[in-house]
Amino acid sequence: TEYKLVVVGAGGVGKSALTIQLIQNHFVDEYDPTIEDSYRKQVVIDGETCLLDILDTAGQEEYSAMRDQYMRTGEGFLCVFAINNTKSFEDIHQYREQIKRVKDSDDVPMVLVGNKCDLAARTVESRQAQDLARSYGIPYIETSAKTRQGVEDAFYTLVREIRQH
């Protein structure tokens, strides 16, 4: 089974770092803004072998026109913010609204991801993020692309959301 996953969120929150940590098991430290990259990885989730087709997208506003296209083809979405960047957390709402509009559905598989949880300088409390996820009816997972904490959990949870859909 193949799953088309799309990673969305503001610029600099760590979308590529999360994806590369999942696929290649290493942490990319330097920031190089993405336009669009796709990665494929075969994994076993709950005993089922599946192929993850992951689209890593641009957070930069100037590429926002490309969003409709990949939102149409994606089956599930990782909505990523950084726990030390309140603005990126506030941006999640717009991504969710755009996904709902493009998919013409209120019920699209999504996982809210709070990345950079290895950093002490948190400005978005776990509780705020949990409340937001609960209001959307989606899971919330904290990750660190640096330490790998929660990385597999985030992507695998999204696959489970798609399966249950």
Rank of each mutant, 00 (worst) to 15 (best):
Y3Q: 04
Y3E: 07
L5W: 00
V6A: 06
V6D: 03
V7Q: 01
V7N: 04
V8K: 05
V8A: 03
A10G: 11
G12S: 12
G12W: 13
V13D: 02
V13M: 11
V13N: 05
G14P: 01
G14K: 00
K15Y: 01
S16E: 01
L18R: 02
L18W: 03
L18S: 05
T19D: 00
T19H: 00
Q21V: 07
N25F: 08
N25P: 09
N25H: 12
H26D: 15
H26A: 13
H26W: 15
F27Q: 04
F27H: 03
V28W: 09
V28N: 06
V28G: 06
D29Y: 07
E30I: 10
E30C: 10
Y31C: 02
Y31F: 06
T34F: 03
T34K: 03
T34S: 06
I35W: 05
I35T: 05
E36C: 02
D37W: 02
D37P: 01
D37L: 01
D37A: 02
S38E: 04
S38M: 02
S38C: 07
Y39H: 01
Y39D: 02
Y39T: 02
R40H: 07
R40L: 07
K41L: 08
K41M: 09
Q42E: 13
V43S: 12
V43Q: 09
V43A: 15
I45K: 10
I45R: 08
G47L: 06
G47M: 10
E48A: 11
T49S: 14
T49V: 10
C50Y: 12
L52W: 06
L52G: 03
L52C: 06
I54V: 07
L55C: 08
L55P: 01
L55I: 08
D56N: 01
A58V: 05
A58I: 01
A58D: 03
G59R: 04
G59W: 01
E62M: 15
E62I: 00
Y63K: 06
Y63R: 14
S64P: 12
A65E: 03
A65S: 10
M66K: 08
M66R: 06
M66A: 07
R67F: 05
R67Y: 06
R67K: 11
R67C: 08
D68G: 04
Q69V: 02
Q69L: 11
Y70G: 02
Y70P: 02
Y70E: 03
R72M: 01
T73W: 11
G74E: 00
G74A: 04
G74V: 04
G76H: 04
F77I: 07
L78G: 00
C79D: 00
V80F: 04
V80G: 00
V80S: 04
F81W: 10
F81R: 00
A82R: 02
A82Q: 08
N84Y: 14
N84R: 02
N85V: 07
N85P: 02
N85Y: 06
T86G: 10
T86S: 11
K87N: 03
S88F: 07
F89A: 11
D91I: 15
D91M: 15
D91N: 12
H93D: 14
Q94R: 15
Q94I: 09
Q94S: 13
R96M: 15
E97V: 06
E97S: 13
E97D: 13
Q98T: 15
I99H: 01
I99W: 03
K100S: 09
K100G: 05
K100L: 05
K100V: 08
K100D: 07
K100W: 04
V102Q: 06
V102K: 02
V102A: 08
D104Q: 15
D104L: 12
S105C: 15
S105A: 08
D106M: 06
D107M: 14
D107W: 10
V108Y: 12
P109V: 09
V111R: 00
V111A: 05
L112K: 02
L112N: 00
L112S: 00
V113M: 08
V113R: 01
N115Q: 14
N115R: 00
K116E: 00
D118G: 04
D118Q: 03
L119S: 15
L119T: 13
A120P: 09
A120R: 11
A120L: 06
A120E: 12
A121S: 12
A121C: 05
T123V: 07
V124H: 07
V124I: 11
V124M: 11
V124A: 10
V124P: 08
V124Y: 09
S126I: 13
S126Y: 12
S126K: 10
R127D: 13
R127C: 12
A129F: 12
A129E: 03
A129D: 06
A129M: 14
D131L: 09
L132P: 01
L132G: 02
L132C: 05
L132Y: 05
R134I: 07
S135H: 10
G137P: 02
I138R: 04
I138E: 03
P139L: 08
P139Y: 05
Y140N: 05
I141P: 01
E142N: 06
A145R: 00
A145G: 13
A145N: 13
K146R: 09
T147G: 12
R148M: 15
Q149T: 07
Q149A: 11
G150P: 08
E152L: 12
E152R: 11
D153G: 08
D153Y: 07
D153R: 10
F155V: 10
Y156N: 13
T157W: 08
T157D: 05
L158H: 00
V159E: 00
R160T: 11
I162K: 10
I162Q: 04
R163F: 09
R163Q: 09
Q164P: 07
H165E: 13
